[in-house]
Nucleic acid binder design. Structure first.
Lengths: 127, 127
DNA sequence: AAAATAGTTCAATCTGCATTGAATTATATT
DNA sequence: AATATAATTCAATGCAGATTGAACTATTTT
């Protein structure tokens, strides 16, 4: 009888990133960033949200390490956000490892009325 | 020049499921369920949490459609939770589609000082 | 120098939800 | 019938974060 295996991913880190993603407007921002839209004003137009709120959501995504920031070389008033490709790859890997359906194991009856019942699969065949 | 493509997934639904997942203790519960641990008491022992709090987290996961509930046929006091395999498959598909790195497109300069600059790639070669 | 532009930061409010402890339900045991 | 067991529900508390409006910073334009 095998023990419990450690989760394949750091749960604190995964939960923190998922928290940043678990917001409809932020998902929409990420979608727009993937589509090539990248400045605060356009995001605000698309989502019908004021610029300060866009800034807030962008900050959440940035602090989760999911996006990059860059200032325009010609006119430094403009700020461009973009997907952090490496972070996205890591996220996909972590998510895929954790929620891999192949990890699902059958119930281990160490609890409840059946916990003391001897299972056929546990009886050693000796002769 | 192409327009913005619709996201490949229902953002409301994905966000709701991610919100259910974005909690370290719930991730740990899901991990334990995958490992075959399935009753409130054992989850509570493993996470050092009181049973009512385990119930709360299980309810969140259940309302997100991620887990199944079943009562013991012999002693109905015991309740067994398990991973909803179909929901997990759908989640993986939705997540993978949304966060597919291949979806990332180059910046579309419809904003900022470069928005009026004619790009070489936009000049039609006529002869 | 003054005004305009793009964006961020700050303070206040409101809401959702994790947590806690007590009460309750349902079932089984004595 | 009374008690024990497994779990859920309920009420109250505290905190994190979404939202709002105003103030502020940095840069460019006039």
């Amino acid at each position: 009888m095998k023990g419990i295996t450690r989760p394949p991913t750091n749960l604190q880190t995964l939960a923190a990133q998922l928290k940043a993603l678990a917001e409809p407007k932020r998902l929409m921002i990420l979608h727009l960033l993937m589509e090539g839209v990248q400045c605060n004003c356009e995001l605000g137009d698309a989502l019908k949200l004021p610029p300060n709120l866009i800034s807030h959501h962008l900050r959440m995504l940035r602090e989760a390490g999911l996006i990059n920031v860059e200032r325009d070389a010609v006119d430094a008033r403009w700020v461009y956000y973009s997907i952090n490709r490496a972070a996205l790859d890591e996220l996909n890997t972590a998510f895929g490892s954790f929620f891999d359906p192949d990890r699902i194991k059958p119930r281990r009856p160490t609890c409840g009325p059946q916990s003391s019942v001897v299972r056929v699969s546990d009886i050693a065949v000796t002769a």
